[in-house]
Design a binder for these strands. Structure first.
Lengths: 210, 210
DNA sequence: TAGATTGTTAATCGATTAACAATC
DNA sequence: TAGATTGTTAATCGATTAACAATC
């Protein structure tokens, strides 16, 4: 199930296909051609067909794509049919925002634990999930089969915490700390560098781009 | 000041250069060669030189780059020498997290106002900034010379609110709503689609990539 | 069958890397 | 001057788009 390596450019577009197909599905639309999808999504029909054909022939000549089927298949490709078990490190506003965002749970991303260094928070709950001291992290990760850790902590501690998590067996890190993490092969890091994003917006504003 | 259009691929890398140069500066390092920077940042020296030369010759043959100077120049390119005036629409956890993140302010991104539909929140303050009713948005934007609006609202209302904001003269939208906004030329949208990011991580986990 | 639209190959475009002459 | 390293051109690589034969 991994013949050729798929480029991250393609992977980055999959969630967007998934979203638009979900919307079409909700509207009760059963079939869609690459050209129709192209018009809605404002990408070329050619790119849509190329992207999808990385994963298999989901369409049918003369017909197009079955919306529900394609939606489900992309969901599977994205691993949304499997349950992911997450912990959050850092119970600040950002951590809380993520825990409270129900849609992740709907997609199979289950928040199992929250950890923070602040002893005042220990024992309090966020959406029914207790905030625990950092010391319990290792045991919790191992006992609850956690595969993803979300880092909503300052950059100063992120590298060290990430190393610990990897040693506990974490396979994926969703990193909101403004630092680059270097992890061993087999561990995935997905960065959300908010200040980089804001700076990009700033650049495009001052450069008076199109 | 806009001879050739710079590709977004290059722009996306600028904040990262800026971050590493800031760290070198803090360490008191005065000069750096593209090769040294390459080793630290794990990109090719060639790419660094190409990227920088889109904006001018900041280096000196036989010497390399002056850290402080290059840091300042990239800051200017990113528009961080100019003050940006922001409002946040949506005072939920995510909105609060952003308002409370001091580092944005340090870079010249000043939060001037917060708006929310929830009447219960009106008059309350977040880090000294009052939460206002949506009805006051237009006047506030015009009177306070707001150039960036941050959308931390559900996707259901995002498109409509974005349209309003554009009509009030907003030039940049930092969009956290999970929907694609279509804005007129001259208005910049920078998307932060958190669920897309999480799905990408999920894909890389299940595809057992490197 | 005729029409539509995919899957896929070929062509183009753009981005990255390599190489080296210019120059500090 | 000799050595180092940039700025920049040329080569390569990868991603996107176009084209069309395959086929439903």
């Amino acid at each position: 199930m991994e013949e050729k390596e798929i480029s991250q450019a393609v992977v980055s577009r999959l969630p967007r296909y998934f979203r638009y197909l979900g919307e079409l599905k909700d509207e009760g639309i059963e079939r869609v051609s690459s050209q129709e999808l192209s018009d809605i999504m404002r990408v070329t029909a050619s790119q849509i067909r190329q992207d999808l054909n990385n994963f298999g022939g989901f369409g049918q000549q003369g017909y197009g794509y079955n919306v529900g089927y394609l939606y489900d298949e992309i969901g599977k490709i994205l691993g949304l049919n499997k349950e992911h078990r997450l912990i959050i490190i850092g119970a600040g506003h950002l951590g809380q925002a993520l825990v409270n965002y129900m849609n992740f749970e709907r997609r199979g991303f289950i928040f199992k634990g929250i950890f923070d260094i602040d002893t005042q928070l220990h024992g309090t709950q966020i959406r029914g999930i207790a905030v625990r001291p950092m010391q319990e992290m290792e045991q919790f990760v191992r006992e609850n089969d956690i595969d993803i850790a979300v880092l909503t902590i300052p950059k100063s501690s992120a590298i060290e915490i990430a190393e610990q998590l990897v040693s506990y067996g974490i396979k994926g890190i969703w990193n909101f700390a403004h630092v680059d993490l270097h992890v061993p092969k087999g561990v995935q890091v997905e960065n959300v560098h908010l200040s980089d994003s804001l700076m990009k917006l700033s650049y495009n504003l001052v450069s008076r781009k199109g």
